[in-house]
């Protein structure tokens, strides 16, 4: 049974802030940060945007492009680490806004930056088992960062939504996850900002999990790097995905269309799947795509995806890159206001 991505939609808030502007305020070297992180700017949500609004906008685009009756959606999972409520789901807001009705499976997910791909896996299972016709998996964040912290240069906002079902534009031929208890980044209850283990988030966390998941998937499928036309890895900065691609034998050309982080920053739960959406924007029937997410804490979900002929009649405009290019730059004061960081 061919189960996969029936449709996808994305949302990136229109506002951007440049690394130079953040570095100016904190007395740091923008050049050093740009060369260290490979990030030039990041997306910033409007004052009236949050993970719920981003999720709804991305999901609306996905449902519109799928041209399906929202009532045929049988499951909604929203993955995020910035759900607007600590208790009370985001997924119900999405369901109501889309007009899905009341008979659907649903929950909010949290697994740092991989909660969106975890939702995709759950939907694949539901569809394959025949329990639902379509599942909606969303990864979205308006990620938090403490003013002055290194994360402030990267923590961005955006999200992607995927309708999972049969007769897809891209078949998910296999998925594999690698999970361990590795506390490289966390946020304790009632704390406004996450904390992280600094350089510890590199080797033991990101690189170990991403490479293990990718290798596990390739082992399971008998594929190697050359069998993929594209690859997209979680993008906390521009350095990590480029380096991990190299470690796994992928070329820069394979990852380039999905490498968004230099221009919008790290959209956390949206990061790898926005990259996937950008690749689907340009992919042709028969193309094979490797997707590997990473969530601190830690785990990676790897997917092998093959684009089908159906994509040729699928509406892919506006593209993710169209949305990335449409930015309005704001200064640090406005950024603080948008992010609700001004104490009143």
């Amino acid at each position: 049974m061919k189960v996969g991505i029936v449709s996808y939609g994305t949302y990136i808030p229109i506002y951007r802030i440049k690394v130079e502007e953040i570095a100016r305020v904190w007395g740091e070297s923008a050049e050093a940060i740009k060369s260290g992180l490979g990030i030039y700017q990041k997306s910033v949500p409007d004052v009236d945007e949050d993970t719920a609004t981003i999720s709804v906008e991305a999901a609306r685009e996905a449902v519109y492009r799928a041209n399906i009756d929202p009532k045929d959606i049988g499951a909604i999972y929203v993955g995020s680490e910035s759900h607007p409520y600590a208790v009370k789901p985001t997924a119900t807001i999405v369901g109501e806004a889309l007009g899905v009705g009341n008979d659907f499976f649903s929950a909010d997910l949290e697994f740092a930056c991989k909660a969106g791909t975890a939702g995709m896996q759950m939907c694949i299972g539901f569809v394959k088992s025949g329990m639902i016709r379509y599942g909606l998996a969303i990864g979205a964040d308006t990620s938090q960062s403490k003013p002055g912290d290194a994360l402030e240069y990267s923590a961005a906002a955006g999200g992607a939504a995927f309708v999972i079902g049969k007769d897809p534009i891209a078949v998910i031929e296999e998925t594999y996850s690698f999970t361990s208890d590795t506390p490289d980044f966390w946020r304790r209850e009632l704390q406004p900002y996450p904390s992280h283990g600094g350089r510890f988030t590199g080797l033991p966390a990101y690189f170990r999990h991403v490479t293990s998941a990718a290798r596990g998937l390739m082992e399971k499928t008998g594929l190697n790097a050359q069998d993929f036309d594209y690859a997209v890895f979680h993008q906390p900065n521009a350095k990590f995905p480029v380096r991990v691609a190299k470690m796994l034998g992928f070329t820069n050309e394979q990852i380039k269309p999905g490498l968004l982080v230099p221009y919008i920053g790290n959209t956390y739960s949206g990061s790898s799947i926005l990259g996937l959406a950008a690749i689907l924007d340009v992919a042709k029937p028969g193309d094979r795509i490797l997707l590997v997410s990473f969530g601190s804490g830690a785990g990676s979900d790897a997917f092998s995806i093959i684009v089908t002929d159906t994509i040729e009649n699928f509406e892919r405009n506006p593209s993710v890159w169209d949305k990335i290019e449409k930015g309005v730059f704001i200064d640090y004061g406005m950024y603080l206001k948008h992010r609700g960081k001004i104490r009143m």
């Binding site: 990136i12 229109i14 409007d46 009236d48 945007e49 949050d50 709804v56 609306r60 806004a97 449409k326």
Partner: peptide, 27 residues
């Protein structure tokens, strides 16, 4: 149309969402 926050009932209250509009040229 666009889906946005209208406001909230204070920092610990519920969040009001609803329909606003954006220029058609926006994505």
């Amino acid at each position: 149309k666009a889906f946005r926050k209208y406001g909230e009932d204070g920092a610990s209250g519920i969040i009001y969402y609803g329909t606003k509009f954006v220029p058609a040229s926006h994505f």
